[in-house]
Write a protein that binds this DNA or RNA. Structure first.
Lengths: 233, 233
DNA sequence: CCCTTTTCACCTAGGTGGTAAGAT
DNA sequence: ATCTTACCACCTAGGTGAAAAGGG
């Protein structure tokens, strides 16, 4: 779908006011979102899957733009995954017959569990092709496949730092590179932001929802080694 | 070594007149050059090995620069590889005992064989990080490892087009991005070029000199599969 | 108990020269 | 005879989730 810009869309520079962004792989994002998207964060940094990709239009072909992303906490809560159990008795049955531990999906879910941890350093990821002309950005799909998520507060690889077990909304920004001398004074007019609700996710260090795991395995080419069933195009 | 700029170094913009470039892996380049460097060209495009890499200095840290390479024919000749043979009789012996065909190195060499073919379209390879600030370019070694050579005159991948069996001199250019309105008028002052004689090579579709092949295998990590002997650090 | 870290087999993606067949 | 092409095994480089170990 097409994301509307936030409040205050008026008063924008004409180089950005007509900018539009269409999320690519929208149906895949929606499929994940229906289950509750989870994104792995690691110390070394982990890519997102699905990858955040957009098709741009409405830019000035001859003007320079910088494209970037950041991640906004969706609330100030910390979450925990609540496993549901088979049969009655729950805990007692699990203790009496330990492995194999079998859990039910339908009764498992995320529960708010207190206030958010202190916010991680608010970093930003510049698309590595930045800056580039509007024509170049609009020529083909813009892919943020170099972006990596980490839970390491001391990360010095320039990755996006997130708190595990917290929810986030990816946000995409188009910034017009203003050649005017005192362009700082117009900074607030020179960018336009896009948020696609279907891309929100829970940051985790290990997947909790098995259906998310299975959908990742089914749709991410790098996880092909874990597919067992027949090939599906 | 440090390559001097060509004639007419005077009258340059001050943003480039102090620019200097040091060739990286100089001893490897010289080792190849002593044997007569050959570079494979293919229809799909082939990387150079060694990779052309330079360390820059003398740029204005705050100014924007574009870095690029092109390839200059070293002469207007076409070459052929002349095999030397073992023992007396040469051709007769080879006919009588076909495989294994054994050739001598010491008597094999490149011979001029007529005038050059029509020059291929003169293309240029922009370093993909261009444009960037002088500080960014000087921060670390600049590597042209994305550059590919092709013999396909109709190539539409933007690769460098060369004639096989012809000799070339790689050339490196530092271009100051002039923000002035009529910057075209100063174009000739805003760049500085570097040629390292030890990087010249013969374009080939298959290696001719076995000693070049062996040095490629010994020094290119991607050819490790063809090494037989002991590991050498 | 719950979450994080480490290591691993198994992939994708793409850079090597060898080899044999093809082209001129 | 000489050069070119297509395909191949074998690498590098790095992205996957599983599993087991580690930590509070």
């Amino acid at each position: 779908g097409w994301a509307g810009e936030g409040p205050g869309a008026s008063g924008k520079n004409r180089r950005v006011c007509h900018a539009a962004a269409r999320l690519e792989m929208g149906s895949l994002w929606e499929e994940f979102n229906r289950l509750g998207t989870e994104m792995i964060v690691t110390k070394a940094g982990r890519r997102m899957f699905p990858t955040f990709q957009v098709k741009l239009s409405g830019l000035d072909p001859l003007a320079d733009y910088v494209l970037l992303m950041d991640f906004v906490p969706l609330d100030d809560k910390r979450y925990r995954w609540r496993w549901g159990c088979w049969g009655g008795g729950g805990r007692i049955l699990a203790v009496l017959s330990p492995p194999p531990r079998r859990y039910a999906f339908h009764s498992s879910s995320w529960l708010a569990a207190g206030r958010a941890d202190p916010a991680a350093p608010g970093r930003v990821h510049f698309h590595p092709d930045s800056p580039a002309k509007g024509a170049q950005w609009m020529r083909q799909i813009v892919s943020f496949d170099k972006l990596k998520l980490t839970n390491n507060l001391l990360d010095d690889n320039g990755h996006i730092i997130l708190n595990s077990m917290h929810r986030y909304q990816p946000r995409f920004h188009v910034v017009f590179v203003d050649p005017r001398r005192d362009s700082e004074r117009f900074a607030h007019q020179n960018f336009k932001s896009f948020s696609f609700p279907e891309t929100q996710f829970m940051a985790v260090t290990a997947y909790q929802n098995h259906r998310i795991t299975q959908l990742k395995i089914a749709s991410n080419p790098f996880a092909k080694g874990f597919r067992d069933g027949d090939p599906e195009p």
